[in-house]
């Protein structure tokens, strides 16, 4: 389990099983808090003495005290090793249509909100690009590229940053030692670091949907001091069959998300065949020459929906906010 709490209340045997086996299909542990000693359960849970038998996902029968069972409101919690494996049969991919972006920054907002990103920092950056003096400027939303040859994963000494079978590169903030080698290695400068104790801005703190669950690599929350963070392609949403937050937040439909195996991408309103879209619109990836093989494709800023200048207004506001 990604959370080993409740320890001394379970009897010894079942606890061992509990830690070894992965998720319980019907139950999740109550009262997790990672600030305290993980083996001191929180407050109210008192063992009732009444045992129940449960079937774990890998087919073992385990026994535990009934008091520790808590109905799961949403999806069952995943074990760390499950989260490290990824969703079977998927190859996630993103397409970003530069012709549609006017630097509204809604993607960034939604992402920061959902992932409790530290005020001032951003996982998605909307960069005002100009490749050379006489070429046209354009807005480029930049996420983690979820590289297929990820330099960040190569350098991580403790496997805290890892590549999953579904193509997503995730961070395990429970394991990260904060050496920041991955930040130096990432050519896309996409990684941010929790330099201090995470601060929740009021709107996030009020949102019970977003706050309140315990740490998982898939939600990347709650943020942890002294560890790195970055765009995670919202695998928790994918498990629910929903789109990443940036995709659904963008009113202009800039982001397309999908599965390469199914060869389809969607921004919620429109769905395209991925390979055809890339072909028709001459899609490309950033810094192809480095050999990182990104999973994020860009469609060039031609036949634009908005002039570049229309985004400048937002830029100023964003600057003000950041400082």
């Amino acid at each position: 389990m990604s959370c080993n709490c409740g320890g001394n209340n379970c009897d010894k045997n079942s606890r061992r099983d509990f830690l070894l086996t992965s998720l319980l299909a019907t139950a999740a542990l109550a009262g997790c808090s990672d600030k305290k000693n993980p083996f001191t359960p929180e407050g109210e849970v008192i063992p009732s003495g009444e045992k129940v038998k449960l079937l774990s996902v890998d087919g073992e029968i385990i026994e535990m005290d009934k008091a520790f069972l808590k109905p799961v409101p949403d999806l069952p919690q995943l074990s760390n090793s499950e989260e490290r494996k990824g969703i079977a049969g998927k190859k996630f991919v993103m397409v970003i249509d530069l012709a549609r972006c006017k630097n509204l920054g809604k993607c960034r907002e939604a992402c920061n909100h959902a992932h409790q990103v530290h005020p001032g920092q951003n996982w998605i950056k909307v960069l005002g690009m100009e490749d050379s003096d006489h070429t046209a400027p354009y807005w480029q939303p930049t996420t983690c590229m979820h590289c297929d040859e990820p330099p960040c994963v190569k350098v991580c000494p403790v496997d805290a940053t890892f590549k999953r079978q579904d193509g997503i590169v995730l961070i395990d903030s429970d394991r990260c030692i904060g050496c920041r080698f991955c930040m130096a290695a990432c050519p896309y400068s996409t990684r941010v670091f929790n330099w201090e104790e995470p601060i929740l801005i009021k709107e996030v703190a009020d949102d019970q949907e977003v706050v309140g669950h315990h740490y998982s690599c898939e939600t990347s929350t709650p943020q942890k001091k002294g560890t790195v963070g970055k765009c995670d392609f919202c695998p928790d949403m994918a498990r629910k069959g929903e789109l990443p937050h940036c995709v659904s937040a963008c009113p202009n439909g800039v982001f397309f998300f999908g599965d390469m195996n199914e060869d389809s991408v969607t921004n919620g309103a429109e769905t395209f065949q991925f390979s055809q879209l890339i072909k028709d619109k001459a899609g490309y990836r950033l810094m192809e020459d480095l050999g990182t093989k990104p999973r994020v494709y860009y469609l060039p800023p031609v036949n634009r929906s908005f002039p570049y200048e229309s985004g400048l207004e937002n830029e100023k506001q964003e600057d003000k906010k950041a400082n």
């Binding site: 403790v158 496997d159 904060g178 002294g226 560890t227």
Partner: peptide, 16 residues
């Protein structure tokens, strides 16, 4: 320099 010096042992437990 480490952000989480208390996890130093991870280098030996999870070292790659």
């Amino acid at each position: 320099d480490m952000g989480r010096p208390e996890r130093f042992m991870n280098l030996f437990i999870h070292g790659r």
